[in-house]
Amino acid sequence: MLRSLFGMFSNDLSIDLGTANTLIYMRGKGIVLDEPSVVSIRMDRGPGGPRSIEAVGSSAKQMLGRTPENIVAIRPLKDGVIADFTTTEKMLQYFIRKVHRSSLLRPSPRVLVCVPCGATQVERRAIRESAAGAGARKVYLIEEPMAAAIGAGIPIDAAVGSMVLDIGGGTSEVAVMSLNGIVYSDSVRIGGDRFDEAIINYIRRNYGILIGEATAERIKHEIGSAYPGKDLLEIEVRGRNLSEGVPRTFTINSNEVLESLQESLYGIVSAVKSALERTPPELASDIADRGIVLTGGGALLRDLDKLISEETGIHVMVADDPLTCVVRGGGRILEMIDERGPEFLATE
């Protein structure tokens, strides 16, 4: 009872702890934080010496690939799960502090964290403990596709099947939901990061030029597409020529990018296809009738909806504001927890 009284003064947070970006939604305030999940660590006395946090978030992202020897910029999450436990905890702590100042009247917040549905028990525990260590009063875990569907405004409470494909930085989650539960879910470790890697590899193979992650991401954002379009887009980028060893400028077009992404895209399409194969027929017919909803940053890849639609024969649509679907859905779930209690959560 006292806790719920305290709860009136504290603001609950919904966190989308993503491989690429971390978003925090505060009840009654909307999205209060959207920063890259990057931490840069200063190690003045070598790798074994004391470590201190140099920067977190967007300032740390600018350091990626541009750091001197005593600073490392790292992404503590890989493939949607925690790869570096302590750094993740520090990062979460920094983000929570940034949006929620604790005081006597505002105790630590309740936190809802979205986890990939493919996360193992060990990984879930790591996420839960990081959030608790970062100062959460209570930690709820929810599967990402569930939050994504709610954030996208799909009525998953009805006895009708809905399919959501959430393409994040590290993982892509495909899930079929009905009656507030997950009927089928699958997670493939292909996401925005894999797209970047594919572009880097393609350029190294075909041009003999090495580009960095940030450049690859820029190429993907500006001319990346998943389906051959009518017009050819071009972009001028700079990289280091491997044979000459000097920086060179070159031009790459959207068809080449499409070619480089083929393999990763095929992985996502086959995940969707196998999900449809394993969905009970009634739900599959519902999905065929209504269509598949795309969320996550990957949904912003040009014509990805068209590719999946052509491959599956089902209409595919991109949700409004796909990047924030998961965290908005988490915020809505927190409200429901207050109204109904946490029982309806699939993952506790």
Partner: peptide, 13 residues
């Protein structure tokens, strides 16, 4: 149509 999300998706397409 079940939800505004779907309506918007169809409209865009």
């Amino acid at each position: 149509i079940a939800s505004p999300t779907f309506v918007k998706g169809y409209l865009r397409a």
